[in-house]
């Protein structure tokens, strides 16, 4: 993702969160979206992306912000694998109809009835994916009063800010979604029962923050800090935003009081 809109620039951005997580084209669906925060993760998630695409016969997008794309850091390549068909692929793959009736791959459903049936099948598959493929990592969330939520480069920078805040004695944690769809709402929802406030950090005007609010579902205030148009936040800016959230929640009653 680069700064936009239009030609924009080639600075890192996260401005396409809505575009990639809501659908990858026309139609009523979500792609699976994976967001690396390091070069190593970019490698590992790309491998995973192919496996998930095969497993679910579904679009998978690895969405990296421009910083990941332009960065060098040490990484270990996974062992090379021979390309192979997924075990389930035999029933639908186009390999030549030797010894079987022909396979046809099409998404054309001209009638409304067949179209609706097809869409219901897709929705059933999305429910399975939503259950099985939520992914995130966490730092210091167990006793955190305030939880910073950020993915990709913003999540990585937020982690530095969280460490600074811990050193200053603030009980703050980091929740970094790795899957943007399905959004790790189950775990975030559980944390919302304990934490007193959330801070979404993004390199955009506030997109993932909507998903954070849906997962938190009104149980705690959700603040937002973002930089736009290719600007990357410094840890100090996020640190200040964290202290702002602590001030905001200080006046709120503690859950269970």
């Amino acid at each position: 993702m680069r700064g936009g809109p239009g030609l924009g620039n080639i600075q890192p951005s996260q401005s396409d969160y809505f575009q990639v997580t809501r659908s990858a084209g026309h139609g009523d669906y979500h792609p699976i979206v994976l967001a690396p925060a390091t070069v190593q993760e970019a490698i590992d998630l790309t491998t995973l992306a192919f496996d998930l695409a095969d497993k679910y016969r579904h679009v998978v997008i690895v969405v990296a912000d421009g910083l990941i794309g332009q960065m060098m850091e040490p990484a270990t390549l996974p062992p090379m694998r021979d390309p192979h068909l997924h075990p389930d692929a035999a029933s639908w793959a186009l390999t030549g109809a030797e010894g079987r009736t022909p396979n046809v791959v099409t998404s054309l459903c001209l009638g409304a009835e067949t179209g609706e049936r097809h869409n219901k099948e897709i929705q059933a598959r999305l429910r399975v994916i939503r259950e099985a493929e939520q992914r995130a990592t966490e730092v210091f969330t167990e006793d955190a009063e305030v939880i910073v939520v950020g993915y990709g480069t913003a999540g990585r920078i937020a982690e530095s800010a969280v460490h600074q805040a811990r050193e200053a004695g603030l009980k703050v944690g980091l929740f970094r979604p790795i899957a943007l769809w399905p959004f790790p709402e189950r775990r975030l929802g559980a944390l919302a029962g304990r934490a007193r406030g959330f801070l979404a950090v993004e390199m955009n005007a506030g997109q993932m923050v909507d998903d954070v609010r849906l997962a938190v579902n009104g149980r705690a205030p959700v603040a937002f800090y973002g930089r736009l148009g290719g600007a990357v936040p410094m840890p100090e800016e996020i640190y200040d935003a964290i202290t702002g959230v602590f001030e905001q929640v200080a006046s709120l009653p503690v859950a269970g009081d």
Binding site: L94, T95, G96, A97, P102, N103, V104, V105, T106, S107, L108
Partner: peptide, 20 residues
């Protein structure tokens, strides 16, 4: 490989593996 156009249903008429 079938196109979009009147031959969009070519996969119904050819007796072999096909994709739209």
């Amino acid at each position: 490989v079938a196109p979009v156009g009147c031959a969009v249903f070519a996969y119904n008429y050819f007796n072999m593996d096909f994709i739209e």
